[in-house]
């Protein structure tokens, strides 16, 4: 099942060229772009691991693409997303976030039902991928 999170997630995967122009748009607005990755695709997992610090004071998207390619080399089997932070309100807030890399196979989620007091039922979504330990969830070594 294809994970849809952030912008453009219902579109086909962005090409590098499209990523470059999105990043350039963000830089043009004065936003700092950050790279994050994870292998836990649960929608409530908001805090992904950071690939280095957010990139401040960049002028051109080539710098972000350089880092992204480095990140793909190591974590190419995981989800990687770019987030753009706007600091103009006085704090950093996310203005744009989109997935730029996803595992080859996304096994999807199962729904767990817990019968609780009386006739109540609690529902939980669980990714099949997280059944395996961290780092080995998408066929990684």
């Amino acid at each position: 099942m294809r994970v849809t999170q952030g912008c453009f997630s219902f579109l086909p995967d962005l090409t590098d060229e499209q990523i470059t122009s999105q990043v350039q748009y963000a830089l043009g607005k004065g936003w700092a772009v950050n790279i994050e990755f994870t292998d836990d695709p649960h929608p409530r997992n908001t805090y992904w691991e950071m690939w280095g610090l957010p990139m401040f004071d960049l002028q051109d998207a080539a710098g972000v693409l350089m880092e992204l390619n480095e990140c793909r080399k190591i974590y190419g089997d995981r989800y990687i997303r770019l987030s753009a932070f706007d600091s103009s309100p006085g704090w950093e807030s996310v203005r744009l976030s989109f997935i730029v890399n996803r595992p080859k196979e996304e096994p999807g989620f199962r729904l767990e039902r817990q019968e609780s007091d009386g006739r109540n039922t609690r529902y939980t979504t669980k990714s099949y991928a997280v059944d395996r330990p961290e780092g080995r969830r998408y066929g990684g070594s």
Binding site: G52, Q59, G63, M66, E67
Partner: peptide, 14 residues
């Protein structure tokens, strides 16, 4: 390495 790379990233496109 991170320091040099940061400078390089800032200089990209220029």
């Amino acid at each position: 390495a991170p320091k040099t790379k940061e400078v390089l990233k800032k200089a990209m496109g220029g």
